[in-house]
Design a protein around this nucleic acid. Structure first.
Lengths: 350, 350
DNA sequence: AATACGCGTGAGAGCGCTCTTATAAGCACC
DNA sequence: GGTGCTTATAAGAGCGCTCTCACGCGTATT
């Protein structure tokens, strides 16, 4: 009597109540709900009407208690070191994952361990069987999680190529081919002294993008010069240091392929500060195709990655694996696309 | 015999088994697990040993079936129109939410409706009682979700000020004060013809940031001139159009406050292209303090928002409301901070 | 006409947990 | 040393669902 008391107690109807209203047994209602074929059309209609009337929604907890499945999937995003958060990779990836999972009636449980202690808890949580599978993104090199989960019989799919010879399913963008096409483009537009600012070489994208750079040089008949490869770490600071050294050693540079847009943008402003014109003196190409690539001056040529699609594929692979356990790890490599803008325009054209 | 068969069947122990091993009843084990005080120390120790030995983890589905709680919280991120995804707002917000939720033993269920049809499904899912509460982010103006959920008795907390006079708990950053401090800084450093490129004026941040701009002008004794307020929409295109018009009407502009970094960066390159020096001729200040703000040329002065903390507060508010339903909506407004960089340096100093 | 088989449906067990209620044990008191 | 009290533990019901099994009916087979 103390309060006016909130209405809408949200007392969800149960199977039992639906059954009563429809004049059938609980089992039959269950069959209708789960789309069993073994129900006569007339009964199905009655039941559906009752469900509609009562606004019935299955109690997921009760269901998963008996089915031993949770119909939910964990997405584990490990803290990427440093500023990698500077780009909107995760929202887009999550959107891709989310839409596919929703379409297949799975819940998305997001886990973002920060401290090592969190990671232990996450591992516990996952192996406790609260989810049917896990999607792992941006692990560090020596993360024990994939091995632990695989050993525990939990289906997983990684985002990005696994570091070592770990045999798990994964989805990745074709970093190598993307970098290759970027550098091939520089060669095709007349650049001859092409430097690269790499990503960290203990990460797959760092390695693969450098490899793509080398591939393009080889194909273009240009000599590989290790002093044109400056080690970056995807951050502005790292890129600045790398570029400063590069310009000191090779003032004749006429093109730069940066392994990330963040670094490419830093290069853009540093080159300007050093009195060089982009693209007149030096062409610049980045990787990621961030939204700000169109806001820089000049606009930045960059390699576009199908991130949403990566999410789709990851979710698809995982759900398939949950539904039909498959001993063979699968992998999907998605093509990238070079988006040409002003920062790499040919010398002849303005 | 077909396969070597995977080991580690992950047959989680049950309460019953723990009870058997510890020589007590199921109920006693349950008390230990849930931290009841009514257990003698010796028995508690025995039980804990048994739990340890069997690697017991409670079955969440079974628990929530009887407690009628899920111990999980939904985070609903509605598709922001256009490019707003260009900034890493969501990862940071999610990180804040995630860490607080984890600390309070709640699961984070992420829902990202894209199409209107998705939104209906999300609403259904939420009202079906699968979660204990919901965090709603970046709703559009007329989103019916808050009202629906509140009516259904579900605790919710919004991220960002609610559009109309909706009475719900929310957490927001102090957009108005942030903008005010940015513009006050411009005035203090000698700027007199200060324009603004606003955000869309049907969003709370758009409105509040413009209001902060006006506040600062009033306090600084400058006349408000509506033709110095150009309507933007947070995108580069919008900003470009707004700025072009602004410069045409007011070539004497000596400072620009852009309601987002994305727009500020666009302004930076456009001003350069028009032959104006930043900060020599025109000072530029943005809002968001994106990571690329340090990579632009010149580096961009911007208003920093405590996004992780916003996530923390949202989660804290919601979990508190779930634990102790509170008829009074709460609100938390977090302070912003102006980060001064080269783009707004005073004319006297280089 | 008798047997067999399919197919739609109902009855009932039981998933692992919490929570209420009952019981046993311990202790103080007069 | 019996009465009354508190306190630790056990027993058992039941949350809402799925799923196996049995049943009864209609149709095909011999």
């Amino acid at each position: 009597m103390a309060q006016p008391s909130g209405r809408s107690q949200r007392t969800n109807a149960t199977l039992e109540e639906v059954a009563l209203l429809a004049g059938v047994s609980r089992a039959t209602v269950s069959r209708v709900v789960n789309g069993s074929l073994r129900v006569s059309p007339s009964v199905r209609l009655d039941v559906q009407a009752a469900i509609e009337r009562l606004g019935y929604t299955p109690n997921l907890a009760a269901r998963s208690l008996v089915t031993r499945r949770s119909d939910s999937i964990a997405v584990v995003i490990t803290q990427p070191t440093g500023q990698v958060f500077a780009d909107p990779f995760f929202p887009r990836l999550l959107r891709g994952i989310s839409s596919t999972l929703a379409a297949r009636d799975r819940q998305l449980i997001l886990l973002m361990p920060e401290l090592p202690a969190d990671e232990a808890r996450v591992a516990n949580y996952l192996t406790a069987g609260h989810v049917d599978g896990a999607l792992l993104v941006s692990l560090h090199e020596d993360d024990p999680l994939p091995a632990r989960l695989t050993a525990a019989g939990m289906p997983i799919v990684l985002g990005g190529r696994p570091p070592k010879g770990v045999r798990v399913s994964y989805v990745d963008v074709d970093n190598r081919q993307g970098a290759q096409s970027a550098v091939a483009h520089l060669i095709a537009t007349g650049r001859r002294v092409i430097a690269t600012i790499t990503g960290p070489l203990d990460t797959a994208p760092g390695i693969d993008r450098r490899q793509g750079y080398r591939d393009a040089l080889a194909e273009g008949g240009l000599e590989l010069d290790r002093t044109l490869e400056a080690l970056g770490d995807f951050t502005p600071e790292g890129a600045a240091a790398a570029l400063t050294e590069l310009l000191a050693v090779h003032p004749e540079i006429d093109a730069i392929f940066a392994a990330s847009d963040q670094m490419a943008i830093t290069a853009l402003s540093l080159l300007g500060a050093s009195g060089r014109k982009v693209p007149g003196d030096v062409a610049v190409v980045g990787f990621d195709d961030l939204a700000i690539a169109v806001s820089t001056n000049p606009q930045l040529t960059s390699v576009h990655q199908p991130i949403e699609e990566m999410g789709h594929e990851m979710a698809r692979l995982l759900v398939d694996a949950v539904d039909a356990p498959d001993p063979v790890p699968r992998r999907v490599i998605l093509a990238t696309e070079l988006i040409q803008r002003a920062s790499s325009a040919g010398r002849s054209s303005p």
